[in-house]
Simulated scan of single mutants.
Amino acid sequence: MEHLPLYWRFIRINIKAKTEYRAAFLLTFLSRGVLWSTEFALLWVLLYQFKSIAGWGQYEVMFLYSLNLTSYSLAAFFCFHPFTKLPAKIQSGEFDELLTKPLNPMLYLMSREFTASYFSNVTFGLLFMGVCMYKLQLALSVWDYLLLAVVLIGGTLIQASAFIYTAVPSFWMVRNNSLINLFMNDFKSFIRYPISIYPASIQVMLTLIVPYAFINFYPAQYFLNKSDFLLFHPSFQYLTIVVGGIMFTGACLLWKFGIKHYHSTGS
């Protein structure tokens, strides 16, 4: 804990480095905004043709999208570069140098490679969420907004855990792209839509095995006044932060296990 100011200083340096060239930072911000806005618009057009999916309207499905995008972006601030590039660092021997420093390896890696460009993703994710809430005429209380913040924190922990879980196997197998694609792309694609449209086996998998449904589907039940729980108890709509905490704790323990049993590649 004594090194927390140092970790924060690394983050500030990254932010300062990105914003020093304001024109480039602004162009990156706008280009990412165009990308996410285009995807948001394409989803809207698709849903406009079908009107609804299993009782979920256009803006309700897009609310799921915005919860996923925002929590993913918050996690990616700290986790995208550190953990997606971990296999390359191990293979090149750069990771060995990191272990020689008198700092927590995970916190050092996350703060040193903090990705400031995800500010645009978070901004547009929150913007899309606001548009959905406005179109759906959701009258949220102060308690509801606090719960929404807790849901985003829990979703961020789940997303961060996914980065860590898919990176740790790199300590034993340098090339694990198939695992990363499976958990970061294939499984995540299911939660673009309400999981109630899938067979029971998929719902169980996304709830109990790879609990991505807690990122957006279950909390959306509360905010949108839905009742698509089907196989599970209604209390699941409040468990995002609990699931996120459990997953992140497990990810940290797995990371420590990987560090303890790590053997240098000798590069």
Rank of each mutant, 00 (worst) to 15 (best):
P5C: 06
I11M: 10
I13C: 06
I15R: 09
I15C: 02
K18P: 01
T19K: 09
R22Y: 11
R22G: 12
F25A: 08
R32W: 12
V34E: 09
L35S: 07
E39K: 06
E39G: 10
F40W: 15
A41K: 13
F50A: 02
G57M: 04
E60H: 11
F63Y: 12
N68P: 15
Y72F: 14
Y72N: 14
F77S: 00
C79N: 14
F80L: 10
P82I: 04
T84P: 02
K85N: 15
L86M: 07
P87E: 10
K89H: 13
K89E: 15
K89D: 10
Q91L: 11
F95Q: 00
L98R: 07
T100S: 11
P102I: 08
L107W: 10
L107N: 05
S111M: 04
F119W: 15
V122I: 13
G125W: 07
L126F: 15
L126I: 14
M129A: 03
G130M: 12
G130R: 07
V131G: 05
M133Y: 14
M133Q: 04
Y134F: 11
K135D: 08
W143I: 15
V150D: 03
S161T: 01
A162N: 12
F163E: 02
I164N: 02
Y165P: 01
T166Y: 09
V168P: 00
M173V: 15
R175T: 15
N177G: 14
L179V: 14
F183C: 08
F187Y: 11
S189F: 11
S189C: 05
S196Q: 05
S196D: 12
Y198G: 02
Y198H: 05
P199A: 05
S201T: 08
Q203M: 07
T207I: 04
Y212P: 00
I215Q: 00
I215W: 12
N216T: 10
A220N: 05
A220W: 07
F223P: 02
N225H: 15
K226P: 09
P234Y: 06
F236Y: 05
Q237R: 03
T240E: 07
G244N: 01
G245A: 13
I246L: 10
L253M: 14
K256Q: 10
H261Q: 01
Y262G: 00
Y262V: 03
T265E: 00
G266Y: 07
